[in-house]
């Protein structure tokens, strides 16, 4: 009859058995096979999640209210691995999806995982606007300074001179400092952490998720295959213990000490933290229980006679 109905949809004929179900709803991970390279910094982040789920529950966020959004890149496989509500989005588009989910249901706790190419390159504008709106979501950036899934090109946080497959002579661009941008944009929680050092990372991620407003955690996450910076980071990172997170000026000074390259010391911890109204708050009090659509339509029409 029609072109579509004429299509042969008889298919493969036999069905493959369903994958094994996780060991109960309480399991932190799904059955998905982990395909990160040995030594990948993403394991450190995933491991934090295994305890973070229970910790969030202890802090009033039951796991069914958690939604994890991921972009596209090695980081994003976390969406498949986590036995949580997930939205495996597009490259660069974690933040708008996370924003939409939060606006759709402000009772959800929405955590976006993104890559540095993903979030600081393809989708930088979304991060700035999320900061500007102070939408109550958390953004965890797996910042490895390289496009790994596409096998090794420079990213917005790669240092000048980075020799990748698209810049064999060395990148001619300065890296951006995403934390400066986030503060400038209006983010109310800005932190940096490292994929090595589970306790520190766990605490920072927990603080970020529980923070009311937009939070960014730039996680120095090592790509063991295309940009192995373990020794570079191990030599330079330190935990801040003397900063004042309530001071924007102090935060910007500390953030500026390391410019995503060179020999500066790399401060870890929370640079900036403040309280402000959240964008999702605007949409919290909508009550549709008594809304009669037919009557509303008739009323709007009557006003136009």
């Amino acid at each position: 009859m029609s072109d579509i109905a004429d299509l042969d949809i008889s298919g493969a004929g036999s069905r493959r058995p369903q994958p094994a179900v996780m060991e109960g709803a309480a399991a932190p991970l799904t059955y998905a096979e982990n395909t990160w390279c040995p030594g990948c910094g993403n394991f450190g982040i995933l491991n934090v999640w295994k305890t973070l789920i229970d910790e969030l529950a202890d802090n009033g966020v039951p796991r069914e209210r958690i939604v994890v959004v991921a972009g596209i890149g090695c980081h994003a496989k976390i969406a498949d691995y986590l036995n949580l509500n997930t939205f495996y989005s597009l490259h660069g588009r974690t933040v708008p999806v996370a924003t939409g989910i939060k606006l759709g249901n402000p009772e959800l706790t929405v955590i976006a995982h993104a890559g540095d190419g993903d979030c600081y390159g393809e989708g930088l504008e979304h991060m700035l606007f999320a900061a500007k709106r102070n939408i109550d979501i958390s953004l965890m950036v797996h910042d490895n300074g390289v496009y790994a899934l596409t096998t090794g090109q420079y990213t917005p946080t790669s240092p000048r001179g980075f020799r990748g497959k698209s810049t064999p002579g060395g990148s001619a661009e300065q890296p951006i400092n995403p934390l400066e941008l986030a503060v400038a944009g209006g983010a109310t929680f800005v932190a940096r952490s490292y994929s090595r050092g589970a306790e520190r990372l766990r605490q920072t991620m927990l603080d970020a998720v529980l923070h009311r407003g937009f939070s960014l955690v730039d996680i120095l996450q090592v790509c063991a295959t295309f940009n192995n910076l373990y020794s570079y980071y191990n030599e330079r990172t330190f935990d801040m213990d003397d900063n004042d997170p309530s001071s924007r000026t102090d935060a910007l000074n500390r953030i500026g000490e390391w410019t995503y390259g060179g020999d500066g010391r790399i401060a870890l911890g929370t640079f900036y933290r403040s309280e402000a109204d959240t964008f999702d708050g605007v949409f919290r009090d909508i009550d549709r229980s008594s809304f009669d659509r037919e009557a509303a339509v008739r009323d709007l029409l009557a006003r136009r006679v």
Binding site: V97, A98, G100, L103, N105, E125, F283, I286, D287
Partner: peptide, 26 residues
């Protein structure tokens, strides 16, 4: 009309935000 009306940064954000909303049941 109990509507959530949002004017985001660009049309990419527009549709991705709307899809996020749909995921949440909006």
């Amino acid at each position: 009309c109990s509507l959530k009306v949002v004017h985001p940064e660009n049309e990419i954000a527009v549709i991705l935000m709307a899809l996020g909303m749909a995921y949440a049941g909006e």
